[in-house]
Design a binder for these strands. Sequence first.
RNA 1: GGUCCGUUCAUCUAAGGGUUAGGAUUCAAGAUUUUCAUUCUUGCCAUAGGGGUUCGAAUCCCCUACGGACUACCA
Length: 510
Amino acid sequence: MNSKVRVRFAPSPTGPLHIGGVRTALYNYLFAKKHGGDFLLRIEDTDSGRFVPGAEKYIIESLRWCGIVPNEGVGFGDGAHAPYRQSERKELYLDYALQLIDDGFAYYAFDTAEELDALRKEQESQGKAFTYNYQVRTSLSTSLKLSKEDVEERIARGEQWVIRFKMPENEQIRMQDLIRGEVVVNSSTLDDKVLYKSADQLPTYHLANIVDDFMMEITHVIRGEEWLPSLPLHVMLYRALDWEDNMPQFAHLPLLLKPDGKGKLSKRDGDRLGFPVFPLQWQDPKTEEISSGYRESGYFPEAFINMLAFLGWNPGTTQEIFSLDELAEAFSLDHVHKAGARFDFEKAKWYNHQYLVTRSDEDLAADFEKILAEKGISAEHNFVVKVVALVKERVNFVKEMWQQASFFFIAPKSYDADVIKKRWKDNAPALIAEAKDVLLNFDGFDAETIKHGLHDFITEKQANMGAVMNCLRLSLVGSSFGPDLPVIIEMLGKEEVAARIEKAVKTIGI
RNA sequence: GGUCCGUUCAUCUAAGGGUUAGGAUUCAAGAUUUUCAUUCUUGCCAUAGGGGUUCGAAUCCCCUACGGACUACCA
């Protein structure tokens, strides 16, 4: 193939993008980058009834946050194929639909929604499914049955009509999928899909999608597996429009499944199972219901993308940490898995941890300072940098640093009862008070000096190392966790340490 | 119901006729540590079932089971 690779992500603005959609966008982006091609964003807003205000903006913002930046498209600067919003291209589609009628590949249908409903019910009552196909199209109110004059008159009268594709009878449709190989379907099992409707003068997805992909010179269609059943129709449309030579190659991605078993991941799963399904937080404009997002949960976009890329794809090596550029370099549709992937929240957290620990202390401190500010705490920047360096290994998210490090900024308000029970023996207050005096008399106050000093003190008193250190920790931290104690003591400083020990001696056990 | 797609540890996956079926996450144990965590080591755990083809099958074919998607004048 000598034409430049061009792929697209074409969501419809009916709500927030969930992680499955983000992954589809990601794979398209990676594929384009890998092949030095273009990636574009097209908004498929042909369903006016399901339009959700804010959804388009949400999609654009999500892609931006992820670093999945299209070369052209809505919100990313127009290219040569503008506009990229189907509602702004609406006058394009009718001509093609009419052309299909002229060429005998489509026809007018005048059935009302009520009539169709009645037909469906009737068939259902006999245990059969109603299919609008070769068996019925010549006996219903269609241009295949009605006279030319009748059809023209109905249209002139303003009667509502749709244009349906005339799916041929008993033809083996062979299709090539880049991920699944050859797929064969008999056309008799397919129905005559609506391509265009007079009511809103808009095409349906199928027509608009094919016309736009053709006009935008799309070479590869990478989309979710839920579209596989409509592939035969799409292939037939390319043929009917005589565009088969320019038909893109197709790749249907495995679905993202619910973590607890049944079905594809849906918008409702997230907050039900305690993890986000959306990249960004979303508030439903109607119900005002808020759904959590990865960004707001504290994920780094790099970690989020890395995690998503590995749901259904692998590089063929054991490397698991990839930057976006590295992903683009390694990406190949050959390594896309065929089966659906169940989303694993634990792995998502692990990915974030990996990115967190490799992030610079400076950057982490800047992030953590925002959280401190929310708590009304201001601290010296260098101090925060040190704190962050000390606790980063122990957390998955920056915001978890607060639980791990709050004692660096505020004295413990209470002491862990379990630790008191286990460690705070009768002699503890006296011992700790003495340790405090020893600490205060050190010449230097660096961790090394403190460590040796405390060690000597413990040896001299013939005390138990664990007992002294843990009581000291309890006094300073309020519990039994945290980094190396001498380091904590150094960072807190003489005065603060003395004050905390005094308070502990007075308070604990009473 | 019909059409299509799929099925390797609990989870994400590797192995495209020849490996003790590998890695990662989770979980468990041990080591380290004043504590917690990290880290390190070890362990547990899989080819859905049945038939073929073959010297040899996770891999190719068939059947069954199970799972999923689609089945709108939605995308």
